[in-house]
Design a protein around this nucleic acid. Structure first.
Lengths: 121, 121
DNA sequence: AACAAATGCTACAACGAAGTAGCATATAGA
DNA sequence: TCTATATGCTACTTCGTTGTAGCATTTGTT
């Protein structure tokens, strides 16, 4: 979809391509459109397209807006009271890993993903 | 527990220390003992202790045996048919990340974790 | 205006993981 | 041998996420 980002894609075409449930996918798309990543056009010949260029959409933004980034930023071992001063055994190494991942996600745009490889999806 | 690995720790003491549900924790410990990471001793004055030295217990082993490593090794985007030849847009970068993480987990023993930092847990 | 083809909304179902309850079993010690 | 104090087992409950169903709404075409 990002390969031709000004084109309108119907839910039906996306569902067929990705082989995922129709209604569920539409719910996700509606959510994305509420979060201003895509525009949804209702009515006959409607569909979804990007709101801005894929160069300017970063993975971290999407994750944060859909799932909430906090979900992935907590303690690996699930301790609530895990802080730098009083931390779990994996705290340091895991925090480092998270940071690195987050940096990558913040810098990687959808456009980057496209040009990287020959993709099926 | 790994700091004094030949000592026997009761479920009760572990539960109080970690502040997690008793029964649930016992179920996990039973599982770990079936997978030969720890030995459980039943009856009065019973408890759990390590089966071998923490130097020889690696994080990857534990994860694999408890959760099954496959659970974490699939496609990030959840496509079943995601292979090197026909892959999703994040395939390459994510595979690299997984490899690195797995290497670290394979090399990190419980003993390593202990000496790293001042830990609460 | 009526119809068809699209998305939007909301309540419900199915499923897996996390957590609970109750009883069974094991064992040290008086 | 009896009792108190442990863990083991298994069925049930709770909760969040994924997925479904049905109807409402929007809009292009005739």
């Amino acid at each position: 979809m990002a390969t031709d980002y000004e084109k309108l894609y119907s839910a039906k075409s996306i569902v067929e391509k990705l082989n995922i449930p129709n209604k569920y996918m539409r719910r996700i798309m509606t959510n994305l459109s509420k979060n201003n990543f895509i525009v949804s056009i209702q009515g006959r010949d409607g569909g979804y397209k990007f709101m801005k260029s894929p160069d300017n959409i970063y993975l971290a933004e999407i994750i944060d807006s859909v799932d909430g980034i906090d979900k992935y930023m907590g303690c690996v071992l699930g301790f609530n009271e895990c802080t730098p001063e009083s931390s779990c055994a994996m705290h340091k190494s895991w925090t480092d890993t998270k940071e690195k991942l987050y940096n990558t996600l913040s810098k990687t745009s959808l456009a980057n993903l496209i040009k990287d490889t020959i993709n099926k999806f």
